[in-house]
Design a protein around this nucleic acid. Structure first.
Lengths: 229, 229
DNA sequence: GAAATCATTTGCCAAATGGCAAAAAAGGGG
DNA sequence: CCCCTTTTTTGCCATTTGGCAAATGATTTC
């Protein structure tokens, strides 16, 4: 549908696990570390607490499995064909998930913004090669769990499985709800409702990515913007 | 996008829980009942066994919570605005899930075919009114669990939560994978790949429903079909 | 099996979107 | 501040899709 101009898609995966920046220890520890912990993990903790209540001990167990990861604009978090054994949570920035359609055009499947999970479940759950790329559109900060660490929580945190089920089903339902109107609404409506629902993403996403997400070419999107003015 | 002709959409919900047709008892029971059990539940049992192994006792516990439900063509299984506390599994037939877009056109969000679950998770999990209609396109046979029965299994079947997580995440991932190409491919490609992937649905779905699923009008779909011939 | 109803196709023309290339605008680095 | 690169807009025209209404085909009902 849309042919995209080449972007500065640096495929070298310069990202590295930037050594855990979590200096948190148990509550008995000194105050400074607790502050760091709260600062680093607060959004994540708030996020999971939506889905069920957890004791401080359980939150500790979970946090101890987390590492942080920083990506610079245009860096890839995951490349199609590779198996991803990481479960991520996006603290800052915007990422996009893309794949290649039948015309070899790179299509933006969806965007991920702050305080949402970033994971290729097909790959993570079944150790299958990913069908999609995941790329930072802006500089990003994530919290990342290894598959081992994530699954280890099954044994140590009671109700973890139920919590994970809720997290995942909310995230996947959200994807379906976001994509569905892209099929049934006209292009102008699609653009306007994107701007309305995600105003803070709008300014940070290159139009070429947005156009492919909306299912139109970049020039069509540009013309739509003109007509609206 | 597409304006649909009016269908014979009988809104009276003639469907009724047709009194459990499951005559199954524990394996120590007479042979006839066991046959009934196998015949009625086999597809369902096979389905859940994909996601983890279960003992005969666990399968019994699960089966005892199931009822069967038959719907005739055009009957509604769920109507938008109502809260759905049922978890279904489609044994025979095809259903469609639809909603109203911003132009009040009824859009087919997706089809459900044999051996797949039928549930509005948003409604089921959170007791919220459903945003979608679910309607039988052909005569249908389902297995249905009440929310109470379904959740009761949490206490009696070890690992039930994990199994449910896998069932749900597979079903939701499938939805996303099916919808995504509807945004990125041209209409002819969308139609052709639908025919290729779901040949046995093709003959059983009215074109108007298929057109709205594909994001085009019925007349456009008709013209596309003509061009292919 | 004739009438009525429903589903699909088609004609005609308008509107929306695509393809390509060039121009304009915006941004980044020295 | 200027040059270079990237991003966005625009012009021109072809192609696709939509809207509407009528015609055709299929199915049901009595």
């Amino acid at each position: 549908m849309s042919k995209l101009p080449t972007h500065n898609t640096n495929l070298r995966h310069r990202a590295r696990h930037s050594g855990s920046k979590i200096h948190y220890s148990s509550p008995s520890c000194c105050r400074g570390s607790l502050y760091d912990y709260l600062a680093t993990m607060k959004a994540w903790i708030d996020y999971i607490l939506q889905f069920g209540s957890l004791s401080q001990e359980q939150l500790d167990l979970i946090s101890q499995k987390a590492t942080t990861l920083e990506l610079r604009k245009d860096e890839y978090y995951l490349q199609a064909g590779k198996i991803s054994r990481r479960f991520g949570f996006l603290m800052e920035g915007i990422m996009r998930v893309s794949y290649y359609n039948s015309k070899e055009e790179e299509i933006t499947k969806y965007f991920v913004d702050e305080n949402n999970i970033v994971v290729d479940l097909q790959s993570f759950d079944n150790d299958q090669p990913s069908a999609a790329n995941v790329q930072a559109i802006t500089d990003c900060k994530l919290i990342v769990f290894s598959k081992q660490g994530w699954e280890g929580l099954l044994g140590t945190v009671t109700g973890w499985d139920q919590l994970v089920r809720k997290i995942i089903s909310k995230a996947l339902l959200q994807k379906v709800e976001r994509i569905s109107p892209l099929v049934s609404e006209d292009a102008t409506t699609r653009y306007l409702s994107f701007m309305e629902k995600y105003p803070n993403m709008a300014n940070r996403i290159p139009l070429s990515y947005l156009a492919s997400y909306l299912g139109i070419t970049q020039s069509s999107l540009s013309r739509i913007r003109k007509n609206i003015r």
